[in-house]
């Protein structure tokens, strides 16, 4: 399955789903696009899965795709990837959990409830992943790069 980008074609149907036609000319509907390493290496290892979850194609790096395919993949991923990057911690309701956090993210300001300190996970490279009570994951790309106020608030939970 280490096929390069060019032995299949992608298209979008009227329902907004992706369809893939493979080298043998077989058409697969409802194709899903999945990042293999959404945090560590988002642009590497993109997998195209059939509706029942079998891998149809593997793209080693997004750069290897032609512009049309790349656009389709980007669009699909944009509508699917949801991991707001937390840029600023404005306030927390209490230092004890559950605590409601008001934050600025790359997707605009929002609030969420942190259930417990264990929902803050350290990732390699000073990154943090915070899961709220509904399982939405917020990413802090670099802890030292946050402003002092946010770091001070966050420090109470680490």
């Amino acid at each position: 399955m280490t096929t390069q980008a060019m032995d299949f074609t992608l298209s979008r149907d009227a329902f907004g789903h992706l369809s893939l036609t493979d080298a043998a000319g077989e058409r697969h509907d409802h194709v899903q696009v999945v990042r293999a390493f959404p945090i560590a290496a988002p642009d590497e290892g993109i997998s195209l899965l059939s509706a029942d979850g079998h891998e149809l194609a593997w793209i080693t790096h997004l750069d290897q795709t032609d512009p049309a395919t790349r656009q389709l993949i980007d669009e699909t991923l944009a509508a699917r990837d949801f991991m707001p990057v937390l840029q600023r911690l404005k306030s927390v309701s209490s230092y004890a959990t559950p605590s409601t956090w008001a934050v600025d993210t790359d997707r605009g300001p929002t609030r969420f409830v942190l259930r417990g300190e264990e929902n803050i996970r350290r990732l390699p490279g000073e990154m943090l992943m915070i899961a709220d009570e509904h399982g939405i994951q917020y990413l802090i790309k670099s802890l030292p790069a946050l402003d002092a106020h946010s770091r001070k608030l966050l420090d109470r939970f680490l």
Binding site: A14, F15, G16, D81, F82, G135, I136, Q137
Partner: peptide
């Protein structure tokens, strides 16, 4: 999927 819900309105031909 992954924390995002979506509602799709469609008829028999298109979304």
């Amino acid at each position: 999927h992954a924390g995002v819900g979506s509602l799709t309105l469609q008829n028999e031909t298109a979304r």
